[in-house]
Simulated scan of single mutants.
Amino acid sequence: MAVAIVRNVRPWGGAAADVVIDGTRIREVRPASPAAAGTDGESVDGRGLLALPGFVNAHAHVDKSWWGRPWVPYGGEPTTQGRIAHERAERGPLGLPSVDGATAVLREFLRHGTTATRTHVDVDLGVGLRGIEVVREAVDRLDGAVDVEIVAFPQDGVMRRPGVLDLLDAAAAAGAASIGGLDPAGIDRDPVAQLDGLFAIAERRGVGLDIHLHDRGELGAFQFELIIDRTLRAGLQGRVTISHGFALGELPEPRRLELLDRFAEAGISWATVAPPATAPLPWREMAARGIGIGLGTDGIRDLWSPFGDGDMLGIALGFARLHGARTDGDLTAAVALASAQASPFVHRDLHDLAAGAPADLVLLDAENVPDALVRGPRRALVIAGGRVVARDGDVLL
């Protein structure tokens, strides 16, 4: 159902307001009108519920999921290389990547209020570009209700697999918004060659870069420096993201602060899934320097992990716990990282409850934003692009 106005909601827990929608965008947020509430096909009664912008999942892998199939036990070696090998051995028998699996995950995103996502999609010698085709078909099945930005991702390495750079170039030429990288030192063992190859494609095709970096300590820091140098040299400020980047929280403070200043200069952003066993990020110092931080689910029910339900409020809660957030301001900031503050990760200039923003809203029965974060109540209503797409936990598409 297309919506023209959502009456009587509390944006970010503030005063009651009406959100006026013009097509797929918010035209105005104004004080609540005394007009009779109710649903007339275009007007939705918000019943005084808390309103948030649609959530943004800044780091997903929707092509990998076996969601909708019988339970798949976790197996293989619990290392990055072990997970890669296990996935390569088992994805074929499971029929991965699959349109049904990707569609199921995107439906869970909608159920929980996520209306936009950046998803890494495997591009390798085994599947070629088929994963990208699968994800695009899943997006079409849902009539574009989830805005999906694709990162062509070399999960099996780059330089150690001759031909992968050509596939990444082809993916960029075919419309992928970004290309990815993976542990230039730890996986390829040739960080200079991997990064030179990736940055050359990004410059030639005008796409972004989003590089998975699991390597720890000084090995990770060394690769941070290589990425910073190449970003500045290529003029790609604002178009490069480091995903995971566990080393940042492990470094001594003087070294960490020096790197943060350089990240800010290079306009490099950060995507994290806030794993509980990792070192906290210096997120306040990052925010003070204007370094963008996005939260994501990573993979969901796939051959890397049996966990995940697509709920970005749950990810924001994990981030808050990992970083010792307690105050209302910090708890609200964690939710903003999963919504309004994540707009650059899906190439949106504005993603909020404000005039000109996409008409993406989530209504929850909560007293305020910290209450919503801590309790994670069911999403009472999800509006994406001006359409009601989910109600009381049921996806309507």
Score class of each variant (00 low, 15 high):
288 A>D: 14
233 R>C: 10
235 G>S: 10
223 Q>V: 15
248 L>C: 05
267 G>W: 00
303 L>Q: 01
280 P>S: 10
303 L>R: 00
336 A>R: 15
220 G>F: 03
302 D>N: 08
343 S>C: 09
219 L>A: 13
330 D>E: 14
297 T>V: 15
317 L>K: 10
275 P>W: 09
308 G>I: 03
344 P>W: 01
233 R>A: 11
217 G>I: 05
312 M>S: 09
272 T>F: 01
257 L>T: 12
307 F>S: 14
301 R>N: 11
210 D>F: 00
309 D>P: 07
342 A>Q: 04
344 P>L: 07
263 F>T: 04
334 A>I: 08
284 R>E: 12
291 I>G: 00
321 R>W: 13
210 D>P: 05
299 G>N: 11
229 D>I: 09
218 E>C: 09
218 E>M: 14
318 G>W: 04
335 V>Y: 01
313 L>Y: 06
274 A>S: 07
235 G>L: 06
340 A>P: 09
225 E>Y: 12
257 L>F: 14
287 A>D: 08
308 G>K: 04
232 L>Q: 03
291 I>W: 00
243 S>W: 05
326 R>M: 14
219 L>F: 12
274 A>M: 05
343 S>L: 07
263 F>C: 08
333 A>E: 08
316 A>Y: 02
330 D>Q: 13
234 A>C: 11
313 L>V: 13
338 A>R: 04
218 E>D: 15
296 G>M: 06
267 G>T: 03
336 A>H: 15
347 H>L: 12
262 R>G: 00
225 E>P: 08
307 F>K: 12
231 T>D: 08
275 P>A: 06
227 I>Y: 04
282 P>A: 03
307 F>G: 10
234 A>W: 05
284 R>G: 13
236 L>Q: 01
270 W>C: 05
235 G>F: 09
263 F>D: 00
311 D>M: 02
271 A>D: 10
289 R>I: 11
329 G>L: 13
321 R>S: 15
237 Q>D: 11
237 Q>E: 11
306 P>I: 08
342 A>V: 03
311 D>T: 06
290 G>M: 06
219 L>I: 11
222 F>I: 12
347 H>I: 06
295 L>T: 00
223 Q>H: 14
311 D>Y: 03
241 T>P: 09
305 S>A: 12
288 A>N: 10
336 A>F: 09
223 Q>R: 13
235 G>W: 04
310 G>N: 08
229 D>Y: 12
226 L>V: 05
287 A>L: 07
324 G>H: 10
222 F>M: 13
248 L>R: 00
265 E>Q: 13
250 E>T: 02
324 G>R: 09
290 G>R: 04
240 V>W: 06
265 E>V: 13
297 T>S: 15
219 L>P: 06
232 L>H: 05
333 A>G: 06
279 A>Y: 06
325 A>N: 07
233 R>F: 11
278 T>G: 14
225 E>D: 15
331 L>P: 01
228 I>N: 05
277 A>D: 14
253 E>K: 15
311 D>C: 06
221 A>V: 03
278 T>V: 15
321 R>M: 15
289 R>A: 08
259 L>D: 02
241 T>Q: 10
319 F>S: 04
304 W>N: 04
306 P>Y: 11
308 G>W: 03
346 V>Q: 04
215 D>T: 07
233 R>S: 12
218 E>L: 13
318 G>C: 13
237 Q>T: 12
319 F>A: 01
